[in-house]
Amino acid sequence: MSDHVREITEADYEREVVGAGQPVVLDFFSTECPPCEALAPKFEAVAGQFAGKVRFLKVFRQGNRELATRLGVTGSPTLIFFGPDGRERGERLGGEEIKRTAIKAQVEALIT
């Protein structure tokens, strides 16, 4: 995994996401999910661009069902964006068609 993306579990959610004190992008991923494989390098590239300003996290859906259910996530990959106040912002991105430029645009909106 890259230096800029960390994997968390549902036990870390309150601390790492809600209480982050900075914008967060959270990626729900699964195994046997080619769109997730395709997203990973784009996610890491954008994470590198915003290192220090925005926290990029990923969570393995199969191991963290309760969190997925709580956030209403039913597909992989799903990207959720959070403001510094820990509240969800903007639109969720999902499926195979997530473009690097779309992630970047949403992240820029988080920090402005």
Binding site: S30, E32, C33, P34, P35, C36, R61, Q62, A68, G72, V73, T74, G75, S76, T78, R92, G94, G95, E96
Partner: peptide, 17 residues
């Protein structure tokens, strides 16, 4: 509801159900 109940990929999302 895309990604919140509607899916287009069974191999990706089947296990959610």
């Amino acid at each position: 509801y895309k990604g919140r109940g509607i899916s287009y990929c069974a191999t990706c999302d089947g296990a959610y159900f």
